[in-house]
Nucleic acid binder design. Structure first.
Lengths: 220, 220
DNA sequence: TCAAAAGTGTTCAGCTTACACCCATGA
DNA sequence: TCATGGGTGTAAGCTGAACACTTTTGA
């Protein structure tokens, strides 16, 4: 019979690296492959709740930025039986996973560099592709990037986050800062972070900030 | 038991009007309400095929711009049993529905003004909302609007299409034309259309045109 | 006092916006 | 010849890219 599942692409930023959380599921046919955390939805469970449950059960993080991504329904995407999967994508800040979710590298769950993934089960490679495209897109016209930042951060760290996600390390410092300033999206906490040189001002995301900006249009 | 359906939001532009195709389904509990064309997917049918089948069966149009929109899965969205619905949205040009799909106003299928809809069954009003937002979004950074235009059109007609869809009738003629010219997205056929005044040049969409443009970004 | 990183100002090219103007047609 | 709608040019102001510069710290 047909069933409906959710799969969750969980991104985080750690060690100057865009990372994705993967689990190893021991099931017939897909034995040694990594896959996205996910599972069959319950009879009376809303889709988003099911995705949130996967997050809680598999990573112990809670209250996370979570959004529906796309629904994958090819009849043969799971060779055993038909499973329609609604993919979600989630953004987790390093703060949020501080205690749990350490790098159990030899266990059945681990964080992987999003640009250097192992072979994945089912159509999960495609899901990741869609998720990465969407993530890049979102940080350009919304404040989604802040979901991946710690509570307090320097502007350099924020710029690094953008460059890592966009995979483009050529952003101009001065122009980046000007944009951030004009968007009125962060506010300074009056503290500093030590670096190799002059200490950097710490900022935090403004709770009352305008979250989305209408992108300049193709046509007028 | 749980089942999976597709529902299709079909847009067209006719009579200076953005229109949506609706059908009346006689089923218990939802008797006199209009709803989006849709239905349960077949056991081995890909989602997009199911959506395309709805298009063919209910409207007799074929080979249409069709895209997945969003998946709706609230447990009570259909009070009779659980149905997860994958919504698609489709764009049809007036050319494509010339013969069939006339305005059978008193029948069980008809075109409605997208800005003035009757009460809809299930969560179809929400689907339409999402679809309209997406449509507006898409025509701003892609050439999706051309899917709603006839084979040949004047620049004024194209501008009207944009203004109707965006619900913003203040676009500047000169600037709109400049943008279209610079995007190299249309080419002139050497014919004219009669109007109230000076005849208007007819254009058609360039098959080799760049279909998407990277929108100017929020952050650099 | 020097390297390293934070942080700022200025210029120039290109784009957007607004608006004025000319052109071709039919009545 | 005038109303109607098609079609174009241009000045003013804003935005983004590039780059040079100053500031503050630790070694």
């Amino acid at each position: 019979m047909l069933s409906v599942a959710v799969d969750v692409v969980i991104f985080t930023l750690r060690n100057n690296d865009l990372q994705v959380y993967l689990v190893r599921r021991y099931e017939e046919g897909y034995e040694s492959l990594w896959s996205l955390p996910g599972g069959i939805i319950r009879a009376d469970e809303p889709l988003e709740d099911a995705a949130m449950r996967q997050l809680r059960e598999q990573t112990t993080v809670e209250d996370i930025y979570l959004q529906q991504l796309y629904t994958f329904g090819a009849p043969d995407r799971d060779t055993r039986r038909r499973v329609i999967s609604v993919a979600y994508f989630a953004l987790v800040s390093p703060d949020q996973l501080a205690r749990e979710c350490q790098d159990d590298q030899n266990s059945n769950r681990a964080w992987f560099n999003a640009y250097n993934l192992p072979p994945l089960a089912f159509d999960h490679a495609e899901m990741l592709d869609v998720a990465l495209t969407r993530l890049r897109y979102k940080i350009e016209y919304s404040a989604a990037a802040f979901e991946l930042m710690p509570e307090e951060f320097t502007l350099r760290e924020l710029q690094d986050a953008y460059m890592i996600i966009l995979n483009d390390h050529t952003l101009d410092k001065a122009n980046f800062r000007k944009k951030i300033r004009e968007a009125k999206i962060v506010e300074s906490v009056s503290r500093y972070k030590r670096t190799g040189g002059r200490p950097a001002k710490l900022y935090r995301f403004r709770k009352d900030a305008q979250l989305e900006s209408k992108a300049r249009r193709f046509f007028p």
